[in-house]
Design a binder for these strands. Structure first.
Lengths: 231, 231
DNA sequence: CAGTGGTCTAGACCACCGG
DNA sequence: CGGTGGTCTAGACCACTGT
């Protein structure tokens, strides 16, 4: 009998029985008390192991009913959203940032609709280029709600990108992220050295604080970019 | 004094203090024992709250050192990888599956290199179309390693998609997922009713069991597809 | 109604690592 | 060395929900 089973051991044991075919998808597996007794550890340990496996989508749990091996595994994955600088430097390349344009204006209608801003709401529009060894890596189309972050009007963003400025100056916020594939328009194409119409991997991030929109970032990635899972 | 604080309350309290500006990014926050005393709950409760916040990237924790508010939040996000059928039906549309082609062959060189297969390794190549109300939704380019999953050679995949067959017949496996934007080639364009060269959102999933490659799926999504985060 | 997961408590020991 | 997070235990109560 093994001594001092940890929740990692319990997780591994459950995964082994699933992978080994003992517990095929759809099987109802023993409850926490039974497993704790057979394994010789506390129920809390089994509970944590099963909870994490359920978080990973490997198990389905329902109160009063029990725990089953999920019939459709790999339901969710984790992806990293690194800072551009870190992402570039991780490849061994030198990172360089450049501000392409900076304009203060009233929010255009499409932006107002998207972020829920009032008419005439002042916004800051930035276009930023991020390079890896002087090759274009990412083109950032950034909109900042000045009525929520008025201090941004006094930042020039010449040396520091808006993302770095925002994380240092806005406490914390909820983000909604969406990924898609779009065709490069003339502006994006020029800034990423692409032909117009070429496919571009796009990451759109909307950030809110207490429901109020702070910023919208549209990050266009250069040719051949791949976003991969961790874990 | 509140009674019976739960770990969710503790999480919310910490987040409030971060969002409120009491604890700006980089701040060292009280340790578990102190927080438990001030809040009037057990250390385990605080521990779980802080652990989950650290998992979400909101806090940085180091042994012996302490816990800090992360300087770069939103480092990772969770995305859902639903089954095609569920994804289509969630929109209210009717799901329909069709097998486009099915060929048994020796693995081509690019596939052998990618999955680490031996020369002459038998594989099954499937092309599948997934429809939402008879509009093309996803075009699936699927390769199955028959030396690892020989039973797949006897499945015809006429009524059931390969993904559903695999999850029901291969116990569990590790998956690596990558997302990118590519231009539609002639085949993809035809199957998704696109013009050749149009941008396509591509999800490539490699699945392994004990290090041996099981399958490679290349899922091409129709025009305008967006993948969004949960949580 | 009773079984199941979900959570909290109080206490304990350990691994780690900065001073 | 001592403080910090990381984990395990044994027990308890509650919330939910299938039968």
């Amino acid at each position: 009998m093994a001594e001092a089973l940890g929740f990692r051991d319990v997780k591994a044991g459950i995964l082994d029985r699933i992978r080994g075919g003992d517990w095929p998808p759809g099987t109802r597996i023993p409850n926490e008390v039974e497993l704790a007794e057979t394994l010789g550890c506390a129920r809390a340990t089994v509970s944590r192991a099963m909870r994490e496996l359920a978080d990973d989508g490997v198990l389905d749990r329902r109160r009063r009913a029990g725990t089953w091996v999920a019939t459709s595994p790999v339901r969710q994955a984790r992806i990293e959203i690194p800072l551009v600088r870190a992402e570039v430097e991780a490849t061994g390349a030198r990172y360089r940032y450049a501000l392409v344009s900076r304009d203060r204006m009233a929010a255009p209608n499409w932006l107002r609709a998207r972020l829920g801003l009032p008419e005439g709401c002042p916004v800051l529009h930035l276009a930023c280029a991020h390079f890896a060894d002087d090759f274009p890596f990412q083109y950032e189309d950034r909109w900042i709600n000045l009525s929520a972050v008025s201090a941004a009007a006094r930042a020039d963003f010449a040396a520091e990108g808006p993302n770095e400025w925002l994380v240092a100056n806005v406490p914390l916020s909820e983000a909604e992220i969406a990924f898609s594939a779009v065709a490069a328009d003339a502006e994006v194409a020029a800034n990423l050295s692409l032909a117009p119409g070429e496919p571009v991997f796009l990451c759109e991030r909307t950030t809110r604080l207490d429901g109020e929109a702070i910023t919208l970032a549209r990050l266009h990635f250069g040719r051949g970019y791949r976003m991969t899972t961790v874990l």
